[in-house]
Design a protein around this nucleic acid. Structure first.
Length: 896
RNA sequence: GGGCACGUAUGUCAAUGGUAGACGGCUUCCCUUACAAGGAAGAGGUUGGGGGUUCGAGUCCCUCCGCGCCCACCA
């Protein structure tokens, strides 16, 4: 057998995924058990324009771990993959392509443009689907969805119509967030606030019929051209007599009133506020309260309109600002300009400053939907956020303060709003044009040109992807889904909306749990971003360290933010190599053996200590990993597996069983030892598989054994793969505390002797005599039973175990558990002074520990109030330390 | 302006109120027939400061310092 000494991840990554996919292992249909429990996850649909970044890799790893774990545990598992049409992003992507051909989308026209987008999608979209295959993601490709698919689009129209018919969707003219660059309205969630260093301009407006002036402070002087009032606080004594007065609005021929409104903060600025209802959300509300006119002075291109006056019409908003300020200065009406930092709203995508405009749009009333989500939380505590704090509260708070959702967008790429207008301007909302014609009784219909916010279709994802509004088997089987795994930043945009629509249209929660992952920051603690160019490409990391190692690192990220560090991936790469070589050892010594799960399922009385011990460790590991995954403690699961494999299996079990396994003489005993080892390895690989799919599959298939017979019964008859092998379940009967204690004693002895060898600078090649005095009979028999192993591992020429120690004075010594002592004769090698120092140091350590413990026990209230179990535990520890200390004292005395 | 996290070994991170750990790095020794991407043995901590609750605090409470995130209509 020829196996390289180093693991090459690329080979395994190339060899298995295609086979898994082709054989249908990812699809729930692979499960033949009609009574199998169900586990389902819908993927947060990546944008069709997107490529894999660390955040994806992180989420996908966690989803895949859970999916593979549940699949191996016999669940009917579905991890549903799909992509989002990503309205603005995709439209921009294609618009940019057109620009290279010196074309605009308007040159093509709507229909041709949309065709072009589909063409782009077909040719260049969905890069991420290839990258996800590299990740090893076990998503069911046969059910892959796209938010613009015909069936999903139908679901969108169905929802729209139903909400409209219930009066929850309405069309209205209101002030909205407008992006002058993208030429579309945006929802509040797509607007980003950024601090901005700017100026606060103090403008004076003359009072009509008086020489008094009122000073208002503003960050946007250009909007004064659309002012229709000045507002003051009704309680503000400074302005009491001005309320109701008329002001002459400079630069225009208009006169505006002074109104009283509680919104105005007398402390800020001058206490008088200019009111521009058409260009500021607050002013808009104030305007509604006081019946003020809305004068639109800025157009959708962010240029001044005719209404701004001849001097300004056509100017850009910032040019207009300069000009307004100049004019005020000329007129002597500019009181002062001060530096001022405020926050400015920008388009999340293109960073253009948002212009608040009044515009006719479609809105969704959120009150009733919000209540559905809030009720679900208060009644059933669903969804269960993990971690609960702070996400549940943030989610609930946000819902409580929810405002109407602007759902229309002035784009071409997306779900066109299913509303048609008759020549008379009547609005008909319908599932199709045919239905609209029928409803309207006329064929002359024009469909609303707008499309829906991308998040509108995303909000339906957990049920639209399963076939709703049809009552499909998939919908019945997989809804509600088990868990949603996603990042913090879309709790509002997406999670909350799925809950609301799920409750509204299915009447049930879309998922039980929501696991919110942490964020992976760059090595300096900065967020990774395209603009900062500090992103770390997961595919490069895959290339350098392998997919499995990267997944292990990602799985241990958990829910707190972490800084990326290659070193950690490197250490998991080393771990993969360790797995490789441990298996290599087993394979090199596998003749006469085959995987036999039976050998690890029941302990027989005549098993050696290390065999009983590894079974105990194995079952504890299975227990702990399952418990950790049940609580989404991925980090804990990884640690448990890592230490089981490396420490327990490699460092100890393989070493202890080596003598039997590598015996050159063919024997039943040798074959049994080999079978046990390979069977333990089989279990270990299965435990690791959800985290490290490639290496485990690669190695597992090489192990001798009838692989097809090792599959979980739900997959009987499938092609062999570790993916469908039963996930090890803990058997409490095999957790053997007695064996663990005994093994610990052996490990302790070996460590002590190794320590002596190291501290005394004994050459590795040199054999030593190991003399043990163990007054406790049980310990004595445990050590005696393992003399061969001990001797082998510490390279002893002799291991002698007596009731009392009988060793030459010139020996290095150490104290063991239960008052036992070990001595290594070192005639001529030992420096007595140094040995005394070494032992004294150890004694000091023990004394310090004993001191702390005794102080605790000495506190009368401890014994009184602490649980009896804790007190007993403490007493036991103290007595053990005392025993060791006494023994050390004697040992030191003997050196004198 | 509100709200929420976080601060633990040199680095990155763990620890249901009960002996503070892991990995990396560092020191010493070893290419011992699975693995030098390895083995063995070590060093390294008043858990950001201060106060409190408790028999017992990294963990709960208060406060200060530091870093970060989210929400918000002070022009």
């Amino acid at each position: 057998m020829d196996i390289p000494k180093q693991y090459d991840p690329k080979q395994a990554e190339q060899d298995h995924y295609e086979r898994w996919e082709k054989l249908g292992f990812f699809a729930p249909e692979i499960n033949r058990d009609p009574n199998a429990p169900v586990y389902s996850i819908v993927i947060p649909p990546p944008n069709v324009t997107g490529s894999l970044h660390m955040g994806h890799a992180l989420q996908h790893t966690m989803m895949d771990v859970l999916t593979r774990y549940k699949r191996m545990s016999g669940y009917r598992t579905l991890w549903l993959m799909g992509m989002d049409h990503a309205g603005i992003s995709t439209q921009l992507m294609v618009t940019r392509e057109l620009k290279k051909e010196r074309l605009t989308r308007h040159d093509l026209g709507r229909e041709a443009f949309i065709e072009r987008v589909w063409k782009w999608k077909k040719e260049s979209g969905g890069q991420i689907t290839r990258q996800m295959r590299r990740e090893g993601a076990s998503v069911d490709w046969s059910r892959e969805k796209f938010t613009m698919d015909e069936d999903l689009s139908y679901a969108v129209r169905e929802v729209f119509v139903r909400l409209y018919e219930e009066g929850m969707i309405y069309r209205g003219n209101r002030i909205v967030n407008w992006c002058p660059n993208d030429q579309t309205v945006l929802s509040d969630l797509e607007v980003q606030k950024e601090p901005q260093a700017g100026k606060l301009y103090y403008l004076q407006y003359p009072v009509k019929g008086s020489d008094k002036r009122v000073t208002v402070a503003t960050t946007r002087p250009e909007t004064m051209l659309g002012d229709t009032a000045v507002a003051v606080n009704p309680e503000d004594e400074r302005y009491g007599d001005l309320i109701g007065a008329t002001l002459t609005l400079p630069l225009t021929d208009r006169e505006i009133p002074v109104v009283a409104d509680g919104f105005v903060d007398p402390e800020f600025g001058t206490g008088a506020v200019k009111v521009t209802p058409a260009h500021d959300p607050n002013d808009y509300d104030m305007g509604m309260r006081h019946n003020l006119a809305q004068i639109t002075v800025i157009d959708p291109q962010a240029k001044m309109t005719e209404a701004a006056g001849a001097d300004f019409a056509g100017l850009d908003r910032y040019q207009a600002r300069t000009k307004v300020v100049e004019k005020f200065e000329e007129l002597g009406l500019l009181e002062k300009v001060v530096d001022y930092e405020f926050s400015i709203s920008k388009c999340e995508r293109c960073k253009t400053v948002i212009e608040p405009l009044t515009s006719t749009q479609w809105f969704l009333h959120m009150d009733k939907l919000r209540d559905l989500a809030l009720d679900l939380m208060s009644r059933e505590k669903k969804p269960r956020f993990v971690p609960e704090v702070p996400h549940e509260k943030v989610y609930t708070n946000w819902l409580e303060n929810l405002r109407d959702w602007t759902i229309s967008r002035q784009l071409w790429w997306g779900h066109q709003i299913p509303a048609w207008y008759t020549p008379d301007g009547e609005v008909i909302v319908a599932r199709s044009e045919a239905e609209a014609r029928e409803k309207g009784g006329t064929g002359e219909l024009t469909q609303d040109p707008d499309v829906l916010d991308t998040w509108f279709s995303s909000a339906l994802w957990p049920f639209s992807t399963l076939g709703w509004p049809q009552e499909t088997d998939d919908l019945k089987t997989f809804y509600p889904t088990s868990v949603l795994i996603t990042a913090r930043d879309i709790i509002f945009l997406w999670v909350s909306r799925m809950v609301m629509t799920g409750m509204k249209f299915i009447g049930e929660r879309p998922f039980d749990d929501v696991y919110i992952t942490g964020t992976i920051l760059d090595p300096h603690g900065q967020r990774m971003s395209k603009t900062k160019m500090n992103g770390i490409d997961p595919l490069e990391v895959f290339d350098r360290y392998g997919v499995d190692a990267t997944r292990l690192k990602l799985a241990s990220v958990g829910s707190t933010d972490v800084r990326w560090n290659d070193k950690q991936v490197e250490s998991y790469r080393n771990f993969a190599n360790k797995i490789w070589n441990a298996t290599r050892f087993c394979l090199l010594n596998s003749e006469g053996a085959a995987i036999d799960p039976g050998t690890v399922k029941g302990a027989t009385a005549d098993l050696a200590l290390h065999d009983r011990w590894i079974l105990s460790r194995l079952n504890k590991t299975a227990r702990d990993v399952s418990a950790a995954l049940a609580d989404y403690e991925f980090h804990e699961a990884v640690q448990t597996l890592y230490h089981f494999f490396w420490d327990d299996l490699c460092d100890w079990y393989i070493e202890l069983t080596k003598a039997d396994v590598t015996n050159e003489v063919v024997s039943k005993q040798r074959d049994e030892a080999r079978t046990r080892l390979i069977s333990v390895l089989d279990q270990a690989l299965r435990l690791l598989h959800p985290f490290m799919p490639y290496i485990t599959e690669d190695l597992w298939l090489r192990l001798p054994g009838a692989h097809a017979e090792l599959l979980h019964q739900a997959y009987a008859g499938a092609e062999p793969t570790i993916m469908l092998a039963a996930y090890p379940e803990a058997n409490a009967d095999l957790i053997d505390e007695e064996a663990e204690w005994q093994m610990q004693a052996v490990i302790d002895l070996i460590s002590r002797v190794r320590n002596i060898r190291s501290e005394m600078n004994i050459k590795p090649s040199e054999r030593v005599r190991v003399l043990i005095g163990a007054p406790d009979g049980k310990l004595r028999s445990v050590l005696t039973a393992n003399t061969n192993q001990i001797s082998r591992i510490v390279r002893a020429s002799e291991v002698s175990i007596q009731e009392t120690l009988d060793a030459p004075r010139a020996s290095a010594r150490a104290v063991l558990v239960g008052g036992a002592e070990v001595a290594v004769p070192l005639e001529g090698l030992i420096d007595f002074e140094q040995e005394r120092l070494r032992l004294s140091k150890e004694k000091e350590k023990l004394k310090a520990e004993a001191g702390k413990l005794e102080a605790q026990l000495g506190n009368p209230q401890f014994a009184e109030r602490a649980p009896a179990e804790k007190v007993a535990e403490l007493r036991a520890r103290i007595s053990d330390i005392a025993q060791r200390t006494t023994q050390l004292d004697q040992t030191i005395a003997n050196l004198e």
